[in-house]
C-alpha cells in the first residue's frame, strides 16, 4: 500500500497554564448552537474542564468517540502529588459518566475542531484561551494512504456499521425487487 502524508489537527493542552475560567466550554457551546452563537450552555460543550481548585486540579478534555460500553478504567493516577481518576483524561462519551452528552437527548457529543466553511484559523476554544493553556497545532504524519470513498460508499458503510452487512444486502435486494428490476437483470 502506498504511503501518504496527512495533516493531523491537534490541540496541545498545558494544564499548568489553565486559569479555570471555562471560557472554552462556553464558546464551544455557542459555536455549535444553531443558528451559530445563538445560545450558550456549557453542558453542550465538546470540551470540559475537570477542575477542583482546592486540590489545584485543572484538566481540559475534548470529547472523542462514543463508547457503547463502559471500560474497566477505574485506576487512579498520582501526578506531582495530585490524584486523578483515570476517567479524568478520557475523551469518550460513555455510559459510566454524564459528560459529553447532549443534555436533552443524551446523544453523544464529539469535538469536530470547529469545522466550518470557510474554515477557522483555530478552533474557538483555542482562540478564547488567552491563558494559552490550549494551543492549536497541525502536524504532518506519514501513514498508509486510504482509497478515497465515494458518497454512496460512505453512506453504505455507515448503514452496515449500524445494521450489519447481511441485513443491508438483504434489504437492498428486497427493495430492488419491489422496484420491478430483479437484481440479476441489472447485472451486465
Amino acid at each position: 500500500m502506498s504511503q501518504k502524508t496527512r495533516t493531523i489537527k491537534t490541540i496541545r493542552i498545558d494544564v499548568d497554564k489553565c486559569n479555570g475560567c471555562r471560557a472554552c466550554e462556553l464558546i464551544c457551546s455557542a459555536f455549535h448552537a444553531v443558528p451559530r452563537y445563538s445560545s450558550n450552555n456549557p453542558e453542550r460543550a465538546r470540551i470540559r474542564v475537570l477542575y477542583d481548585p482546592l486540590r489545584d486540579i485543572y484538566v481540559p478534555v475534548y470529547a472523542g468517540a462514543y463508547a457503547a460500553a463502559e471500560c474497566a478504567g477505574r485506576d487512579r493516577y498520582t501526578i506531582d502529588g495530585k490524584e486523578y481518576a483515570e476517567c479524568a483524561f478520557c475523551r469518550a462519551s460513555c455510559s459510566s459518566r454524564d459528560i459529553f452528552k447532549e443534555p436533552d437527548s443524551g446523544l453523544p457529543l464529539k469535538c469536530d475542531m470547529c469545522e466550518a466553511d470557510p474554515p477557522l484559523a483555530e478552533p474557538m476554544c483555542v482562540q478564547w484561551c488567552l491563558a494559552e493553556a490550549l494551543t492549536y497545532e497541525e502536524r504532518q504524519e506519514e501513514g498508509a494512504a486510504e482509497p478515497a470513498l465515494g458518497e454512496i460508499e460512505i453512506g453504505l458503510e455507515a448503514l452496515a456499521a449500524r445494521h450489519g452487512w447481511q441485513k443491508l444486502v438483504d434489504t437492498v435486494a428486497r427493495l430492488a425487487q419491489k422496484d420491478g428490476t430483479p437484481m440479476d437483470a441489472a447485472k451486465p
Binding site: A30, A33, P35, R36, Y37, S38, S39, N40, N41, E43, R44, P103, Q127, W128, L130
Partner: peptide, 20 residues
C-alpha cells in the same frame, strides 16, 4: 444545564471578540 439565548448572535460575537 439549560440554554441562555442571544438575540442577535452575529453582532454580539463580533463585539465580544473585539473585547477579547
Amino acid at each position: 444545564t439549560r440554554d441562555v439565548h442571544i438575540a442577535r448572535p452575529d453582532i454580539f460575537l463580533e463585539l465580544v471578540s473585539e473585547v477579547l
